[in-house]
């Protein structure tokens, strides 16, 4: 159960498939995907998130807790996405970035504001609602981005080299922070990385493409 890929294969016109048909079951917890550059790791994440370039052809099946999501639009998949850049919306305050992500299932102004405040406290960033995201440090931004993803109540999470842009000291701290939250939520997470230490810290299955 969790996130399941069945005989998944992607190819671009005039090129051989990116990788041999891939069947994979991602249980709750962190599964790491490694492999050389250009092998199609990021494209695999695009396929799962639903943002494959239109010229790519996808075969096989993607299911999430039994639902076939292979052809669903990206915004209905309930799959969170984290890149090496935090990609906070530049026109919104930190609090509004979180509110944008917060699932509509949390209703009412007070309840929603409380959820945002709590998320910031969890991230060790209390009272930062009104801050301009551009004034945060790299580590603070990364934590806000993770919180924003989690507030959307994703059923799975995809991480594309999430720690690559952080410096070494911060990287270990962010790893611990991110993995702890994923484990606490007990959702399947697929992480693409170049860094063997990421895989080691994730302490889950490792797939090499």
């Amino acid at each position: 159960m969790g996130l399941t890929l069945t005989a998944l294969s992607i190819h671009f016109p005039g090129q051989p498939p990116l990788f041999a048909p891939l069947s994979l079951s991602v249980p709750p917890g962190i599964t790491t995907v490694m492999g050389p550059s250009g092998v199609g790791k990021s494209t695999l994440l695009d396929a799962i998130a639903g943002s494959l370039p239109p010229e790519a052809t996808l075969s096989g099946q993607i299911t999430l807790y039994g639902d076939d999501i292979t052809t669903r639009p990206a915004h209905t998949r309930q799959i969170g996405l984290l890149f090496q850049d935090a990609l906070l919306f530049p026109h919104l305050s930190v609090g509004d970035n979180l509110a944008f992500g917060l699932s509509p299932r949390t209703r009412g102004r007070t309840a929603r504001r409380k959820a945002v405040t709590e998320a910031l406290e969890h991230a060790g960033l209390p009272d930062m609602e009104a801050r301009d995201p551009a004034t945060l440090s790299g580590g603070q931004r990364a934590r806000v981005a993770l919180m924003r993803s989690l507030l959307a109540e994703p059923r799975a999470l995809l991480l594309d080299e999430p720690f690559a842009k952080l410096d070494t000291a911060l990287r270990a701290e962010m790893r611990a922070f991110t993995f702890a939250h994923i484990r606490a939520r007990n959702i399947p997470a697929l992480m693409v990385t170049h860094d063997a230490e990421d895989a080691e810290a994730a302490a889950g299955p490792v797939i090499t493409l």
């Binding site: 943002s51 639009p73 990206a74 915004h75 209905t76 969170g80 919306f89 699932s103």
Partner: peptide
Amino acid sequence: PRLTRTAAALGAGPWRQLIAVKLPA
């Protein structure tokens, strides 16, 4: 483009991506 993809991953449909993310930015 990752900005709108992030919005989609947070559950925002095409119109919300346009009105709440692209146009203000």
